[in-house]
Design a protein around this nucleic acid. Structure first.
Length: 617
DNA sequence: TTAGGGTTAG
């Protein structure tokens, strides 16, 4: 659910960093001028400064050739064109109608220049063009997209002030605004008021908007309840309604439920499209059900619904994540044969697949192929390759990709620097990591909390604890929020430096800082306790983490089992092996080595071995 | 002759 929300979180305008609902300087200016202009003034203005037609047309210049853009419906592709036309319209006398201006606002809004729409509307009102229901709805929609719901509501006030009646589109716009800001409860409240009020009933768009909101929050049951309500009422569910819910169910791995809804949709006479199939294929692929994916592919093609670049990318990505890169390559061949052009996502998935397998030459070849296909490489695709090299300790190769980025007209961002700094730290080349840390700031790429954590970890792991503490002070000086991740790194650093008492004190003091240890924090502490031979305390901590709602993971069990075996507590270790397997985790290579060693010395019950093998297969 | 939603991939 969080992943979905993160993907869709919309930021406020880039010119300010204030929180949601807090008006920023830019928008408050827009709002103060958001008042109707005196009608007499506008009449006077338009009469007194009315230029002749020929004067007015000379301003339009090249725009006027065959059709007058002021009089015909504009088709604008850039903000610049829109602003130009808007200014031309303001010169016209008599002034064009509000309808013409609304058309421009719509186009600019579609180009996602929402702040610009608000400024244009302000100008309109300054020359005396009164807003109508359409313009107010456009403005409201723009405030919604800027995540300025306070201002969006204030537009509602203007409706009443101007004697205008908000309609179903106005309320749907508001509902969508709350959905965009992940405030679905408030969206649902408006919806319910519409239903209860009776005079402004929700439309199919209203239903679909709220359903999308519920799905975004992972509330599939609420989405389905609304679908059922649609079936009973006048607004019947359509392809969007079903596909939105099917996609959401698939994302939650509820593929069975998604398939049932899919059948239901077809039985109601609604034909699926490529998007419905892509969502389903994504769902089955993520569960590794390749046969089912193939069946769905064949089914869609038999109905003349052809897979597109999204569909193929779903297949390529899933295969790569499962390590089946050669199969993924075959899919890419298939898409090329079908005239579907692989894009940066296709190549990135392939590179990621090769990187996971440590096949770096192949990953590099894919990168070069992508670059040779034109300039489709982006910063993210570079990061995949850089990260792949770093993880395999091929830091010089990683640096080479980094140096190639300017030739590809790509500017390395904070993520790229973080990856490289981590690579240098892990390779023990702290000096170069620190150099990059300064370099990025010189290039205007500000280090974030992750950057500091990476460097801090590097310093701790390379026995530079005092420099690390200085870095921590720098973070505090910059008022950066010190989270559990950085404290875990510090605890680990103290443990590795043999200062376990300080580590324990820091661990115990976490709650006073309002922080909760995560599974990694516990693992670090358990590892340290085992290393010190403090096995009773280690086992106590294992139980304690569970009581505090933090479930141990595979790492926790492997750490503690190794600790017990190394400290010759074989029978305790055996009990924990059983517990680990029962919970669906398995022994990793180094734990397995210890177990096999014990077996060879006849110190472990051989009955446990198949148990471990089965789970690790 | 103008306004809202519209679903899929790293």
């Amino acid at each position: 659910m969080l992943k979905r929300m993160r993907k869709t979180l919309s930021s406020c305008c880039s010119s300010c960093s204030r929180g949601r609902g807090m008006p920023c300087c830019l928008h408050s200016t827009s709002l103060t001028l958001f008042v109707p202009v005196n009608n007499y003034m506008s009449l006077f203005h338009s009469q007194s400064s009315n230029p002749t037609k020929s004067q007015s047309q000379s301003h339009i210049g090249n725009l006027v050739r065959e059709r007058d853009p002021v009089r015909s419906k504009p088709k604008l592709t850039t903000l610049e064109d829109a602003l130009k036309l808007f200014d031309e319209m303001l010169q016209r006398r008599p002034l064009p109608s509000v309808v013409r201006f609304n058309q421009i606002l719509t186009q600019v809004s579609k180009l996602k220049h929402h702040s610009a729409v608000i400024s244009l509307n302000k100008k309109m009102r300054l020359v005396g063009i009164a807003s109508d229901v359409y313009s107010l709805t456009i403005i409201m929609n723009c405030f919604c997209h800027l995540n300025e719901m306070g201002f969006s509501f204030s537009v509602l006030g203007h409706f009443f002030k101007l004697g205008l009646q908000p309609n179903v589109i106005t309320f749907t716009t508001l509902i969508n605004g709350f959905v965009l800001g992940n405030r679905v409860a408030e969206a649902a409240r408006i919806f319910n008021k519409m239903v209860e009020g009776g005079h402004c009933k929700p439309s199919d768009v209203t239903y679909n908007t709220l359903i999308k909101g519920f799905c975004k929050m992972g509330n599939n049951s609420a989405a389905i309840r609304l679908l059922r309500k649609m079936e009973r009422g006048a607004c019947k569910p359509d392809i969007f309604t079903y596909t939105t819910i099917i996609d959401s169910l698939c994302k939650d791995t509820l593929v069975g439920d998604a398939m049932n809804l899919f059948s239901e949709m077809i039985s109601r006479g609604i034909a699926p499209n490529v998007i419905t199939y892509t969502s389903l294929i994504d769902g089955v692929c993520k569960l590794g059900k390749w046969k089912e994916a193939t069946r769905l592919l064949n089914e869609m093609v038999s109905q003349n619904i052809f897979p597109n670049v999204y569909t193929f990318n779903v297949l390529v990505d899933s295969l790569c994540k499962e390590g089946m890169v050669l199969d993924a390559e075959s899919v890419v061949q298939m898409m090329i044969q079908r005239d579907v052009e692989p894009n940066v996502i296709t190549y990135s998935s392939l590179m990621d697949g090769y990187c996971l397998r440590g096949e770096m030459d192949e990953a590099r070849q894919v990168f070069d192929l992508m670059v040779s296909k034109g300039s489709i490489a982006n910063v993210h695709s570079c990061n995949i390759l850089i990260n792949g090299y770093c993880k395999r300790k091929k830091i010089d190769e990683a640096k080479k990709v980094f140096q190639e980025m300017p030739c590809l007209k790509l500017l390395p961002n904070t993520v790229i620097y973080n990856t490289l700094i981590d690579g240098f730290c892990k390779a023990g080349r702290i000096g170069e990591a620190k150099k990059l840390f300064s370099e990025m700031q010189g290039c205007g790429q500000l280090p974030n909390v992750q950057t500091y954590t990476i460097l801090f970890d590097g310093l701790c792991s390379n026995q530079r604890l005092s420099t690390a503490i200085e870095l921590l002070k720098e973070m505090e000086g910059k008022k950066m929020e010190l989270d559990i991740v950085i404290f875990t790194v510090l605890i680990e650093g103290l443990c590795k430096a043999g200062n376990i008492e300080s580590a324990k004190n820091l661990f115990c003091g976490l709650s006073s800082k309002g922080l909760h240890p995560n599974v990694r924090t516990y693992n670090v502490m358990i590892q340290a306790l085992c290393d010190e031979g403090l096995l009773v305390e280690a086992k106590q901590l294992l139980r304690e983490m569970e009581e505090r709602g933090c479930s141990p993971d595979g790492w926790t069990y492997n750490i503690i089992i190794r600790g017990f075996i190394n400290n010759k507590e074989t029978s305790w270790a055996m009990g924990l092996i059983q517990e680990m397997v029962e919970r669906g985790f398995s022994a990793d290579a180094s734990t397995m080595e210890l177990i096999i060693d014990l077996l060879s010395k006849d110190k472990i019950d051989p009955a446990l071995l198949p148990l471990i093998n089965d789970s690790s297969l």
